[in-house]
């Protein structure tokens, strides 16, 4: 049942326990309890809304920043990663394979603000060897959702 609940909520977090109960042939109480458990175990980390901020009219700049670091003994990359993810401007941090070690997503109001953050805060961190910043120009698809596309049902109405 947990797998099914997660599948439903991952598509639409607003699906009510009542509706999920019908879909899975369980009682509402069973569903509520299962969701509680998933939350307590930290499987469900939260519920967010996917927003096309550009459409919402909010000025916003996102940048992908690749960071090369020298790992420190004992803590590996974790220590530097922690120093980076503590900043509120940082939306995501990933440890990645390849030329760079960390991939950081930074959000700011203006390009200047983001550039400043990188130069002042990120690049100067101990252990950071170099950075490469790419500004995000357009979002086509985010977390499985395609932006700007409306679903049309073009099936024959009766077949």
């Amino acid at each position: 049942m947990e797998k099914q609940i997660l599948a439903i909520l991952s598509k639409d977090a607003r699906t009510s326990p009542e509706k999920i109960a019908v879909m899975l042939d369980k009682t509402e109480q069973e569903v509520i309890e299962a969701i509680d458990k998933l939350e307590q175990r930290g499987v469900i980390r939260g519920y967010r809304t996917i927003i096309d901020w550009e459409k919402a009219g909010r000025e916003q700049v996102n940048a992908l920043i690749d960071v090369r670091v020298s790992p420190s003994r004992g803590v590996g990359f974790d220590d530097v990663a922690r120093r980076i993810y503590k900043f509120g401007e940082v939306k995501s941090v990933y440890l990645v394979s390849g030329e760079y070690d960390l991939r950081v997503v930074v959000e700011g109001k203006t390009m200047h603000e983001v550039a400043f953050f990188v130069a002042e805060k990120l690049a100067t961190l101990e252990g950071v060897l170099s950075t490469r910043t790419s500004f995000l120009l357009k979002t086509y698809k985010e977390d499985g959702v395609v932006y700007g596309e409306k679903e049309v049902d073009d099936r024959l109405p009766v077949s």
Binding site: R155, P157, V158, S159
Partner: peptide, 9 residues
């Protein structure tokens, strides 16, 4: 609203 279709959506 068609429930008359005979194929996946």
């Amino acid at each position: 609203i068609s429930l008359g279709v005979g194929e996946p959506d």
